[in-house]
């Protein structure tokens, strides 16, 4: 068995960096709570997923190389508070850079030591958070790329159940896409909105106070929809919930 890591690099992703810094700070807090030293490489930018999903492979590859450089100064594991960006690094960097003699091998090495946040907590650190005596009722939305790309099914649920126990709402169709899909939300606005509507209906019907996900991209979509509706339900990243489970 590999020894429990004591240091990680945190790759927060472009959206957390600019739109949801609180999720990044919460991820730092939780990791430190479990005795892990967190290093935040200051040169980090974007993993390149927007270009990759748009079909702009050369642009995506350029961003992938930058990210690989930024995260290869040390061999510490990389933790990403986003399933889709972790999926990009783990499942798409190696293919994207397969023909690149210099970066191909580096991409593979990085992929092998990159984890989504909840995956790292459960699968690598084996944490079992303490139950919070009180707090909001939580519903969990399974973000697609984490779910289907990284197989994140049990880990986030286990963490949330540990802190919230009975205060877990059952979200119908939790594994159905919220309709974000990056540029899809804009290019195919009406379809994306209709998908979001179904998701919001399910969330509001679930009776939850807070909808939780592993990806701020989905949360930005769901949260923006809830806010437009004037809903009382709030959207929060799993790191925020673990950092402060009583908060609503």
């Amino acid at each position: 068995m590999t020894p429990r890591p004591t240091r990680v690099q945190l790759f927060v992703t472009c959206l957390v960096d600019r739109f949801f810094p609180a999720a990044g700070h919460a991820a730092v807090e939780v990791l430190e709570r479990y005795g892990v030293e967190v290093h935040v490489p200051s040169d980090q930018t974007c993993c390149g997923q927007p270009a990759f999903n748009g079909g702009f492979a050369a642009d995506a590859a350029a961003m992938a190389r930058t990210t690989i450089d930024v995260l290869s100064h040390s061999v510490d594991p990389v933790v990403v508070p986003s399933g889709s960006c972790a999926d990009m690094i783990v499942n798409h960097y190696p293919g994207l850079l397969a023909g690149d003699a210099a970066y191909g091998p580096k991409a593979k090495a990085l992929a092998a030591r990159t984890y989504e946040f909840s995956q790292f907590l459960v699968d690598v650190l084996g944490v079992d958070p303490a139950a919070a005596p009180s707090g909001p009722t939580l519903a969990y939305h399974a973000s697609c790329h984490g779910l289907r790309g990284l197989g994140l099914r049990e880990q986030p649920r286990r963490l949330l159940h540990a802190v919230a126990g009975e205060r877990s709402a059952d979200l119908p169709d939790a594994e159905t896409c919220c309709g974000f899909g990056g540029l899809f939300a804009v290019k195919m606005g009406p379809i994306s909105s209709a998908m979001l509507d179904s998701k919001l209906d399910a969330i509001e019907r679930s009776g939850a106070d807070v909808v939780v996900a592993t990806d701020v991209s989905c949360l930005m979509h769901i949260g923006g929809g809830l806010h437009r509706r004037g809903s009382r339900v709030r959207a929060r990243h799993i790191a925020e919930v673990l950092a402060d489970p009583g908060h609503d």
């Binding site: 927060v12 957390v16 960096d17 600019r18 739109f19 949801f20 810094p21 990044g24 700070h25 730092v28 935040v40 200051s42 980090q44 939300a185 804009v186 290019k187 606005g189 909105s193 979001l196 509507d197 930005m220 979509h221 949260g223 923006g224 929809g225 806010h227 437009r228």
Partner: peptide, 22 residues
């Protein structure tokens, strides 16, 4: 505008995570 046709968009933070963390 296709986004905000049906959803609000979060305002970016005044200070980014990396800046604030540093």
């Amino acid at each position: 505008g296709a986004w905000t046709a049906s959803r609000d968009f979060p305002a970016p933070a005044a200070r980014s995570f990396v800046e604030e963390h540093q």
